[in-house]
Structures are given as C-alpha cells and as structure tokens.
Computed example of a mutant assay.
Amino acid sequence: MAIYTKGGDKGKTSLFDGARVEKDSLRVDTYGTFDELNANISLADKFCQNPENKKLLQTIEYKMFFLQGEIATENVETFAKHSKLITDNDTHQLEHVIDEYLAKLPKVHSFILPGASVAGAQLHICRTVCRRAERNFVKLSRTVSFRPELERYINRLSDFLYVIAREEDYEDYVNKLTDKVLKIYQLYQASKDVR
C-alpha cells in the first residue's frame, strides 16, 4: 500500500474530518508542532534511566494523538465519535506528578542549565517545543474555539516535562556520585589488602 496519496501536491491537506486546508495554515502548524513534540518525547523516553519516567512519557505519547486529533478537526463532536478526548482528569494526573516530583527534588532558586544528563537535555528540548506549540495554539485560539480542558492540559504539559527533566538530571547526579564513592571505597579496600 502506498503511503502517498498525491492529494497534497498542490499545497493542501485534509483535516481529521475531511476538510481541506492549506498546509501552511496555523491549524496545521499547531498540530504539526505537537507532532514534533511527540517525536521528541519518544526520543526522550529512550534516554530515561528511571523506568517510571519512561512509563509516564509513553502515556503522554498516546495522549498526544488525542490532542493532535482534536486540533486537526473543525468539529470536536465529529472527533469525539471516533476517538478519546483530553479531559481535566488528564491534567490532574500531570499536576499530581508535578507536585510529587517537586516535593522530593532539591529546591531551585535560580535558572538552571537545560539538562545535565542526556535524558534531561532531551526533555528540555521537549519542554521548549511544547512551549512553541502552545504559542501556536494560543494564536489559533483567537479564531478557533477549543474546549477549556484542552487548553489546561497543554498549559500544564510543559511544566510536567520540566519536572521530569529535573528528576532525570537528579537521578543521573546521584548515580554518578554513588559510582564515585564506590570507586573510592574500592581503591581504599584494595590498598588495605596490599598491606
């Protein structure tokens, strides 16, 4: 089966509900930027050391399909007949993780560099792409009406990615520190055995 349809050869594409729009329209740019974010989240998930973070990110990857699908549909009722919708429960789940992680991470009193570990750096890329997608969404919302549940979820998503990045960086720091202490201890034990 061919993956090309030739339907977009003249600069137009179809939305979820079949409506045809220009490929450079703000709607397409918005859900396309969330698609870019999802690909980056998938990459971040492969770098994560913490299995719980991997699981959280994989859940987000599936939610992104619902988010993008709703943005790519002119009539939300049409989309709802064929797919799930983002709900306030999804936003509450993000908030729960944010609150839980911030409670256990060291306090931050200044700006931080974007990622001390590979996973942390990739998650900060996700955070910045999410913010760009959100700016497009806000601009699109001036002319297109979206459900407030979708707006709340998008606003919380970048905060979620920020705390997952911080947690991965902190875990990387603790692991490196533990390795360093273990090596020092092993050297100390080896020097005792020589005597």
Score class of each variant (00 low, 15 high):
116 A>P: 03
89 N>H: 13
109 H>I: 15
126 C>V: 02
108 V>P: 00
79 F>T: 02
128 T>S: 06
81 K>F: 00
125 I>G: 04
95 E>G: 00
95 E>T: 02
86 I>V: 04
82 H>D: 08
83 S>Q: 15
99 D>G: 08
113 L>S: 11
122 Q>T: 13
78 T>G: 03
85 L>W: 03
129 V>G: 02
95 E>L: 11
84 K>S: 14
90 D>C: 02
78 T>Y: 13
130 C>E: 03
103 A>G: 03
77 E>P: 06
112 I>C: 09
96 H>T: 15
109 H>W: 14
111 F>L: 11
90 D>I: 02
83 S>T: 07
91 T>I: 01
110 S>E: 14
103 A>M: 09
82 H>P: 01
130 C>P: 01
126 C>K: 07
132 R>G: 05
117 S>I: 07
114 P>Q: 12
86 I>H: 01
79 F>P: 00
84 K>R: 14
96 H>P: 04
109 H>A: 15
115 G>Q: 14
98 I>E: 03
100 E>Y: 10
123 L>V: 06
132 R>M: 03
127 R>P: 02
76 V>L: 00
81 K>P: 05
79 F>D: 00
102 L>R: 07
113 L>E: 13
99 D>P: 03
94 L>N: 04
106 P>I: 04
124 H>C: 10
101 Y>P: 00
129 V>R: 04
119 A>H: 08
79 F>Q: 00
79 F>L: 00
93 Q>W: 15
125 I>W: 10
110 S>W: 12
87 T>L: 04
115 G>I: 10
122 Q>L: 10
107 K>E: 15
113 L>M: 10
114 P>K: 10
132 R>V: 08
100 E>Q: 11
80 A>Y: 01
91 T>A: 05
108 V>K: 09
89 N>M: 13
118 V>C: 11
120 G>M: 04
129 V>A: 08
90 D>K: 05
108 V>M: 05
121 A>Y: 12
130 C>G: 11
105 L>E: 04
97 V>H: 05
115 G>Y: 08
88 D>R: 06
122 Q>I: 14
92 H>M: 10
108 V>G: 00
131 R>Y: 07
77 E>A: 15
77 E>D: 13
119 A>N: 09
98 I>K: 02
117 S>G: 04
132 R>H: 03
118 V>T: 15
82 H>E: 15
132 R>N: 07
107 K>Q: 14
128 T>A: 15
122 Q>S: 15
112 I>E: 08
77 E>H: 09
123 L>C: 08
